[in-house]
Design a protein around this nucleic acid. Structure first.
Length: 436
RNA sequence: GCCCGGGUGGUGUAGGGGUCUAUCAUGGAGCCCUGUCGAGGCUCCGACUCGGGUUCAAAUCCCGACCCGGGCGCCA
């Protein structure tokens, strides 16, 4: 049986030097320009566009008829001969020998794929598959893929082991954020808000350095351009190190991601119209108390012990102007597993990595002493009983350890200067949106 | 959840008591055109979120619902 070839080349694999060669390209009918005796079809694939040129006097009536009324965004495969011509886009065009119509697109389209008429985000998300045919929107996801690869290779290089922890968990273990309850056979369970407890338990195994890139679920009813109810978190945890060490990993990672994306995603960045700034570690560090003083100087008053409000975060971002760390947080605003400073228990070894626009990551050195952790859980008004499975790991030899969690969507939106976080995730889940 | 703004053809918009038989662009249907590249020209098609109210008259004003955007809150 003969194999049907629907594609031999992507559009970017063809050049004017291939004049006379036969190729098969496949994609979507981006545009049709009928000049009467001349008909141009613009085919779009993942890598760009190809012009297919049909001359009325040199093309069979049958072929002309097939494409003349073909709707935009229909799927076609074109077998044709490359013809070098400087009048054509990219310097070449295809003279078709055969055009297969693989699927006809219905009309009218729910949005303008060309991007000539900008649709609202809501309209775009309703027809996300079409929205992502627009190169500008699609390239975000190429970069996203490259960012994830970069993070993996960076952490692999440093001896981290990738792990997968459960996303269905037994209880609202950490307190704080709201969880999504689900039905788990005869019991109630929850979607995991963070791999925190499990990655810490990994420190009691001897795996030493672990990371996980996975979804996190938060049932908060936030309604902003920087929150999602299902997001992606890159988490690390490392044993025999302190918070300073993991901060170093974090800032070097962020800088490496910028450098790598600049190097490997030049074309995508160009399509997005983004020029990545130089990001050089070490990032500036300010203590929580210093942050409050800075804010006071700029007319934003906060009580010591309060978490930063959105306006405070914005003002600080304007002052700092680049990535920075906020360190030495009040112990009271950070979770129970955070290690306080010895001798001044009111502050702890926690840090937030900030981009001028938004918080990117937070982490800390953890409490590794069983009794201390137990006491801290109680102090936070939580019950050690419900943390038994976690606490057990601290009874039989838990090394000192530290870690952080980095929001992938936050990283992407700040890197690519995208206003709404929903744009950097394929199918965002927010307060109102569950479909598609 | 609170505050502010909004909902007009498939998409994006103009219009803010009668002049609306509702503007423009894009799109769709069709015709013309041999070098388009946001092709061009001509013809046609297609809309006032829903429910109540005010008024001689409502896309326009009022009330409610639903939906959208922004700001905030919530969120280690």
């Amino acid at each position: 049986m003969e194999r049907v070839v629907l594609r031999t080349h992507y559009s970017n694999e063809i050049n004017p030097g291939m004049d006379g060669e036969e190729v098969v390209v496949a994609g979507w009918l981006h545009e049709r320009r009928d000049l009467g005796g001349l008909l141009f079809l613009i085919l779009r694939d993942r890598e760009g566009i190809v012009q297919v040129t049909l001359r009325k006097d040199k093309t069979s009536e049958e072929l002309l008829e097939r494409v003349r009324r073909l709707s935009k965004e229909s799927v076609i495969s074109v077998r044709g001969v490359v013809r070098s011509d400087k009048r054509a886009p990219n310097g070449y065009e295809l003279i078709p020998r055969e055009i297969k119509v693989l699927n006809v697109a219905a009309t009218p389209l729910p949005l303008e794929v060309s991007g000539r008429i900008k649709s609202e985000l809501d309209t775009r998300l309703d027809s996300r598959f079409l929205d992502l045919r627009n190169p500008r929107n699609r390239e975000i996801f190429r970069i996203r893929s490259e960012v994830l690869k970069t993070i993996r290779s960076f952490l692999d290089e440093r001896g981290f082991i990738e792990v997968n922890t459960p996303k269905i968990v037994a209880a609202a273990t950490e307190g704080g954020t709201a969880l999504f309850p689900i039905s788990y056979f005869e019991r109630e369970a929850f979607l995991s808000q963070s791999p925190q407890l499990y990655k810490q338990m990994m420190m009691a195994t001897g795996l030493d350095r672990v990371y996980e890139i996975a979804p996190i679920f938060r049932a908060e009813e936030h309604d902003t351009t920087k929150h999602l109810n299902e997001a992606t978190s890159a988490d690390i945890e490392a044993a025999f190190v302190d918070h300073e060490w993991v901060m170093g990993v974090l800032e070097e990672l962020v800088a490496f991601v910028y450098e790598n994306i600049r190097e490997r995603c030049g074309k995508s960045l160009e399509i997005l119209g983004v020029e990545l700034p130089e990001v050089k570690p070490p990032f500036e560090r300010i203590t929580y108390t210093e942050a409050l003083e800075l804010l006071t100087e700029h007319g934003v008053e906060l009580e010591w012990g309060e978490d930063l409000s959105t306006p405070a975060e914005k003002t600080l971002g304007e002052i700092m102007g680049a990535h920075y760390f906020i360190v030495e947080w009040p112990t009271s605003v950070k979770p129970y597993y955070t290690m306080p400073f010895e001798g001044r228990e009111e502050v702890c070894k926690a840090f937030d990595l900030m981009h001028p626009r938004v918080e990117l990551a937070s982490g800390s050195q953890r409490i590794h002493d069983y009794e201390m952790l137990r006491a801290s859980i109680e102090k936070h008004g939580l019950s050690p009983e419900s943390f038994k499975f976690y606490l057990e790991a601290f009874r039989y030899g838990m090394p000192p350890h530290a870690g952080w969690g980095l929001g992938i969507e936050r990283l992407l939106m700040t890197m690519l200067e995208i206003e709404n976080i929903r744009e950097v995730i394929l199918f965002p889940r927010d307060r109102r949106r569950l479909v598609p």
